[in-house]
Design a protein around this nucleic acid. Structure first.
Lengths: 348, 348
DNA sequence: TTGAAAGCGCTAACAC
DNA sequence: GTGTTAGCGCTTTCAA
């Protein structure tokens, strides 16, 4: 390609200095209105494009927020992203999305990449398999503005945005019990992650509150993908459960398919309860009861807090860490409601 | 934060020049092995991080590919992304994902942003509403390596990766006819887009080949989101169709829900046919017949071609534009198969 | 209101 | 095998 036009090219043609051009382009108020217009005019004519790279290098800031997601392929992920965008766009921050495909290795590479790219701050949800979290220490050392959301680092001293997973697990289980379920199977994800651990605790608490003895044979941990869920559900059926509480709508849908193939009636024979209120929970038959997961709101809160941090940091002020807990909401649909009138609610 | 370590800091401490440090860090072969090791060692100790921005400015290349998607929230989109990543990762290209949320305005802003960020090339699928495509001309002027995929600019002289939408539309319609359907409703998206136009042409051709007269009352264009699809389907029912060919799995699923609510039997009363082979097509009941859309392969091809272009361009060689057509595959499931044994296939 | 000069951190041409 | 020097394109003092 022909070389890109620079501010020097503009300056030369207009007989002014590059400084003036730069100021004019940035609408600096102390530039003469006429000069400014001339500059803008010529810039447009010649197809000048601001070189973000050069500006970033000079300004030592990128106005970019790195986002590390564990996966991108879900309604939840896109909701979070939308929530983040809602607050970054008006603030003129760009976002750089990376995903770790649930592996610690990729997560590590992403952290490194984002540091090298000198993002101004990072929003992260942990990968399923990232037990060794040493790769985050460079961020702490740099005092990089950092917000964990959803799947958070329990130990770390940093800002977190989470939903009340305990309450969600409790509500789901409590509801299943109210429908007469007594052998509630719980197929869930890695308990090292706060989200699954807390939901599990909620499950246990609800059982306890209803004097149902906890039975560890009814609990199974797996990757919650199609293959592993299929296996877990199939094995679990030997325990003769009368309900499945699977805190992932996708995995719950997989479970429902298996039950259907075996001509098991949902919810009469076995009730099913998911988690997330994903798009598909409202499209499958019977519709899936679930816990609404306000991804948009989480993204919004995370971005808002992060930008605050970034601004404080620029002023060299101290950031105080805190945890934001977002309430959940139970969504009752056909897959779990045995009694009374159906209480169906549309997907938001 | 404390300032980041630079190659000058390393150079000073080691009593060598910055050049040497730079070379050592980049594993330049003409650097002494011992020197290289010392540099790497100290870099690690001090937590040195390569400054991508500075390097990019200097090298006049970013090793980054911009991707403009019309939306991110689909199995197709993530498949494409995965396909792109498969080829960019080994080539050490980063990808910068933007989405236009189906609006021309956002698309325009994204193009501008990617130019300002000086990406080395761009892969784009058009937004539904981007009729005015003037915002792409800066890319052509710059001879920016550019590949359109899926939703392409019909007019433009550039490389395109598409699937055989005509064949897909033909196969779907042909199949429905073979199942005895005669009044096949077609609810589809903006016909200015090649994808919908070509599927529509395939639909027409199949009708013609079976001597079924084309009836324009059975065709409706809408946004294919939940609200618009609901309205379109509801209105269409007045035409008493015996099949719906809706070239979007999501919209087809919405349609099926409406039919279910009206106690219309699928496929006996009305058959339904989608497009894309999305995740959900295999999870809903009855399972949705559809056309497999090889997103992963498309992403792969697009990225491969783009990187070729980028490399040619660096050598100042000419790029010749071409169109790559990827074949589709019909997936027959319960929603459309009335006769014979069920031919169900799992989602890939 | 404008300009000169310096520098962000890196790489590469050229010299030795 | 290593160093000197210049420069990528921009912003920002400081001075006028």
């Amino acid at each position: 390609m022909q070389k890109e036009i620079t501010i020097y090219d503009l300056a030369e043609r207009l007989g002014v200095s590059a400084t003036t051009v730069s100021r004019a382009l940035n609408d600096n108020p102390r530039i003469n209105k006429k000069t400014r217009e001339k500059v803008h005019q010529l810039a447009k004519e010649l197809g000048y494009r601001h070189n973000t790279i050069a500006a970033n290098l000079r300004k030592q800031q990128t106005k970019t927020i790195g986002v590390i997601l564990h996966e991108v392929n879900s309604y939840f992920a896109t909701s979070v992203l939308a929530g983040i965008e809602k607050v970054t766009t008006p603030e003129n921050f760009d976002i750089l999305i990376t995903h770790s495909a649930e592996t610690a290795e990729r997560e590590k590479a992403n952290v490194k990449n984002l540091i090298n790219k000198r993002v101004d701050g990072i929003i992260v949800s942990l990968a399923m398999h990232s037990h060794d979290t040493a790769h985050f220490t460079p961020l702490f050392e740099r005092e990089m503005p950092l917000v964990f959301f959803d799947r958070v680092l329990q130990s770390a001293d940093c800002t977190k945005v989470v939903i009340d997973n305990f309450q969600g697990g409790y509500d789901a289980t409590n509801h299943l019990i109210s429908q007469g379920c007594k052998r509630i199977a719980h197929i869930t994800g890695d308990m090292d992650l706060n989200v699954y651990m807390d939901r599990f605790k909620g499950y246990q608490k609800a059982l306890k509150d209803h004097k149902i003895k906890f039975n560890k044979d009814l609990v199974k941990v797996c990757g919650l993908n199609k293959a592993e869920t299929t296996q877990a559900v199939t094995e679990m059926l030997e325990q003769k459960p009368d309900a499945f509480f699977i805190p992932s709508d996708f995995a719950a849908a997989v479970c429902m398919e298996i039950l259907r193939n075996k001509d098991i009636n949902i919810p009469q024979d076995i009730a099913v309860f998911g988690f997330n209120n994903d798009m598909l929970s409202d499209l499958i038959t019977p519709k899936l009861s679930t816990i609404d997961y306000p991804g948009f709101l989480m993204g919004e809160m995370a971005a808002k807090t992060l930008i605050e941090q970034i601004k404080l940091r620029r002023k060299n002020k101290n950031v105080k860490d805190h945890t934001i807990v977002i309430p959940t909401e139970i969504i009752l649909r056909e897959s779990s409601v045995r009694k009374k009138a159906k209480t169906t609610r549309p997907h938001k």
